[in-house]
């Protein structure tokens, strides 16, 4: 489904991604781990089309089509979803209005009729319960005054509403209490399907107890330096990143 070849990207003239190679097939769940500042969020943002980052080399295809030449919103409509590590607030715009606008933009793209306010309200209420968010959150401004955990649940709610082909979850597990972690994991597992892929960035192997990945990759210094199965995460937890010989390299930058 997603194929990344020798991807280089920089921000403000500084190279962050230094040749990423990654193949993700439909139905798979990939976990990306790695030290702080290694480029995990950058990779997520570049895939979603954030223009603050410049792709200097390499290619990315989604089901064979060149992803890099699409605008952010076009990528979204093709099924790329990014759950943000730090969701931004949009004061005064209700979550409900924001979500309906998004859902209708997708529907329009697929040639489906738009949902009216009442239809959408019903759907949104159901989905908000699925991530254990009080429907009252639908009326509040987008992420406005949400706690860290509420923001993360809100991101998963959006993924459930938009039903993407590729969901990129950037540290959706961080800052969650134990119950919330369960709720969010259940949400992500609900997304799992044979025609959908999930790429999750995490620091904690405990998430992987709930959402069992097919592949685990270690991103360090802008490159994937090791890939493996589920057991790699356990090993990382036990031994840290030192044994991979990367700590110093990252620190030196």
């Amino acid at each position: 489904m997603l194929s990344i070849k020798n991807l280089h990207a920089s921000v403000e003239g500084k190279e962050i991604l230094k040749g990423i190679n990654l193949e993700i097939k439909a139905g798979e769940v990939h976990a990306i781990m790695g030290p702080n500042g290694s480029g995990k969020s950058t990779l997520s943002q570049v895939l979603a089309g954030n223009e603050a980052f410049e792709v200097t080399e390499g290619e990315v295809t989604l089901n064979g089509d060149n992803l890099l030449e699409l605008e952010t919103e076009e990528r979204a409509r093709e099924g790329i979803f990014l759950a943000f590590q730090y969701p931004v607030e949009i004061p005064g715009v209700s979550n409900l209005q924001f979500l309906r606008t998004a859902v209708n933009a997708m529907r329009k793209h697929k040639g489906e009729p738009e949902m009216n306010a009442a239809e959408f309200m019903k759907l949104a209420r159901e989905v908000s319960k699925q991530v254990d968010l009080d429907p009252a959150f639908l009326k509040r401004g987008v992420n406005e005054g949400f706690s860290g955990g509420e923001k993360k649940r809100n991101e998963i709610m959006q993924a459930l509403l938009l039903q993407p082909k590729l969901a990129i979850l950037d540290e959706t597990d961080s800052g969650l209490d134990i119950d919330a972690l369960k709720v969010v994991s259940d949400g992500v597992n609900a997304l799992r399907s044979a025609d959908r892929a999930i790429l999750m960035v995490t620091h904690y192997q405990r998430l992987l107890n709930h959402i069992v990945p097919d592949h685990v990759h270690v991103l360090a210094g802008g490159k994937i330096i090791k890939s493996g199965g589920r057991e790699l995460a356990l090993e990382l937890e036990e031994r840290g990143y030192g044994w991979l010989g990367i700590k110093d390299e990252v620190a030196a930058q």
Binding site: E73, T101, A102, L162
Partner: peptide
């Protein structure tokens, strides 16, 4: 109207123009 807000809206499939007007409408709600 921040780049981050625009990116969030566009990442959810919303046209840039619609995003701006939505953000401005939110600002004027009161």
């Amino acid at each position: 109207v921040s780049d981050e807000q625009m990116f969030l809206c566009r990442q959810r499939g919303i046209d840039p123009e619609q995003a701006v007007s939505m953000i401005v409408n939110g600002f004027c709600k009161e």
